[in-house]
Amino acid sequence: MEFPEELKYTEEHEWVSLDGDIVTIGVTDFAQDQLGDVVFVELPEVGEQVQGGKPFGVVESVKAVSDVYAPVSGEVIEINDALPDDPELINNSPYEEGWMLKIRLTTPAELEELMSVEAYQDFIEG
């Protein structure tokens, strides 16, 4: 399983990458493996506000549904349009083509709460 070093992670198995005040969010390799084959992804609409720690969408496999939680708060500025037609991108490329949404950060302090790659790896092995 891969966990890129430059990313930040959450206990709900999302990853975060930061570029200025724009944050890209997806689910980790561990999460996609636990879910199994993803068959459907439900995302918020551009313009919606998401709140750190609250669900913003849903990922479904054949026999399971999981909420996806926003790692940080902000306004949705872009969603991955490819996911509704090709939900398997989450399985095949969780950190690249399987990204879920980009938000404009409103509370940068929330970033402090996120885990480093080492902390996340300890967490999932824990």
Binding site: F40, S61, V62, K63, A64, V65
Partner: peptide
């Protein structure tokens, strides 16, 4: 599309 149903989504 069984994820809509009670045996998976329960109260939702």
């Amino acid at each position: 599309l069984a994820t809509r149903e009670q045996h998976i989504r329960r109260e939702r």
